[in-house]
């Protein structure tokens, strides 16, 4: 199997991204502040944390997407000083496939949005990427004909089609069953190697499997901490690699403990208000 097309973003050097002094508040209530995060060039950074802690908001801040309900502050800088707009690919938890387009046209939606039409070369590339996720034979089908796992594979092909140096992934595998998730993690790791990737997840073993670095977003008040050295195995790390199970258990306990504390504090704060 070749990964020639997907290995490196065409003509664009991989970039490092700095998020400085990020803050988030909801309805006047501060969730976190002074959070700084570096996405190292060509590496996978996992942003690990319990639900409701603001992981997605942080990702949206980097993506330049408006925050619904909350207020985010902070600056996002690329290492080369150029603006990030137009250099990001985004993959969400839902596949976001357009039901009226065929699979291949869904992969090409970025080109359609930017240029209204797609060339022969683009279609060939899309077909090649679909081949890499094992769905070239379904290119003409509609998304409704595909299973959830297949649809998310199409979403991965669409993300790769964008061919951007920075890839932001928001829980891209969490809606899938265990086996499908396992396979897709492997495919994504293979096809996105060499890019700067931010993977938002609440699953410690997923983070351990895929990331070069894990940033923990948890606690009360919410803080961002580095999870430290990860098992010295190339990604995607096998789940039975030495030290993996212990690390996963440790991270999970850390999250649970911090989540409990933060919930206690929130609860007592609300009771105090009442």
């Amino acid at each position: 199997m070749t990964t020639a097309l997907a290995a490196k973003p065409d003509g664009q050097a991989s970039i490092e991204v700095d998020v400085v002094d990020a803050g988030l508040s909801f309805a006047g209530r501060l969730i976190f502040q002074n959070v700084s995060l570096t996405l190292r060039s060509g590496e996978w950074t996992a942003l690990l944390g319990p639900s409701g802690v603001g992981k997605t908001s942080l990702l949206r801040l980097i993506a330049g997407l408006p925050e619904d309900g909350g207020v985010t502050t902070g600056t996002v800088r690329a290492s080369d000083g150029q603006p990030l707009a137009g250099r990001i690919a985004y993959m969400a938890q839902r596949d976001l496939l357009l039901p009226w387009l065929s699979i291949i046209d869904n992969v090409l939606i970025g080109h359609r949005l930017r240029h209204y039409r797609t060339g022969v070369e683009d279609r060939q590339k899309a077909l090649h990427l679909l081949d890499q996720v094992g769905l070239a034979v379904r290119a003409q089908d509609r998304p409704a004909a595909l299973s959830g796992g297949m649809r998310q594979r199409v979403a991965l092909a669409r993300t790769l089609m964008e061919d951007r140096p920075l890839v932001l992934m928001d829980e891209p595998f969490s809606a899938l069953d265990a086996v499908t998730r396992f396979r897709l993690q492997e495919t994504a790791a293979r096809l996105l190697s060499g890019r700067t990737v931010l993977l938002v997840t609440h699953d410690p073993s997923e983070a351990l499997r895929l990331a070069d670095r894990i940033a923990l977003l948890a606690g009360a008040p919410v803080q961002l901490t580095d999870a430290g050295r990860l098992p010295d195995v190339a990604t995607p790390r096998p789940l039975d690699a030495p030290g993996m199970a212990e690390r996963a258990a440790g991270l999970l306990q850390q999250l649970a403990l911090q989540d409990a504390t933060s919930q206690d504090i929130r609860a007592s704060a609300e009771m105090g208000l009442a």
Partner: peptide, 28 residues
């Protein structure tokens, strides 16, 4: 979610006028 996706897919100069309307809103 479709709008988010389209916004991120924009080039450095944004998307052409009406592109979201024609490619996403109208068919949807």
């Amino acid at each position: 979610g479709w709008l988010d996706m389209a916004r991120v897919m924009a080039g450095p100069n944004g998307l052409p006028r009406r592109s979201i309307l024609l490619c996403i809103r109208l068919p949807a």
